[in-house]
Amino acid sequence: MPATTSDAVWRRLRRGLTPRASRAQAVTGLLCLLLGFGVATQVRSTQEADFSTLRQDELVQVLDQLANRADQLTAENAALEEEKAQLTDKRTQEEAAQQAAAQRAEVQGILAGTLAATGPGVLVTIEDPSGQVPAATLYLLVDELRNAGAEAISVGSVRVTAATWFADGDGGVVVDGVLLTPPYHWAAIGDSQTLQGALGIPGGALAAVRTAGGDSQVTVSGSITISVVKTVAEPQYATAIE
């Protein structure tokens, strides 16, 4: 057994690393060349990572994994599609609900007088130079217009709604707290022929106006715009029943 002292070992290492034209060195170099070549080739083919170097069972395994993954993704896809359909459905419903709500808001806004309205109807001017026409007669006119199907009514600068009140005032009538003086300009949106017919009934509102000493003109118009709106206060005592 040759010596294994530290000095001897290092001496051998130095001698081994010194290039010499010996057969041992040549053979070692050649085999190392082969090894380096093999390593490089193998590393490259591993990095290419195609399936050509895999064994059959490994390929089967890879195929299984792929099939599993595909199944998972298909299931996930189906779930997401379903969710999407639900969301779309929901959105459609919400849009319909919103549309219905907007329509309802419009209808109620016109009826409650909070929205400006336009449409066919009649314009009525009531002259009362002597100030003899009482508020009750004017209210009768409102009733008559409503009965004839008027959907929006205004007198002077006041929008007439379900809650509008009339009272005799100094030199005119007080409507919803606003003093109006003659002549009174009425506008009513509805079926103009019906409105005109209703106003012309003998013994009706306009007849009462004449009896009281006033005079009236009725104009039928294809397009009346009532831009006067009423601000509706929040109900103080009543709440809605759901």
Binding site: Q25, G29, C32, L33, G36
Partner: peptide, 8 residues
């Protein structure tokens, strides 16, 4: 040394 050169 020759071995290292061969490897490289």
């Amino acid at each position: 040394m020759i071995a290292v050169i061969g490897l490289v």
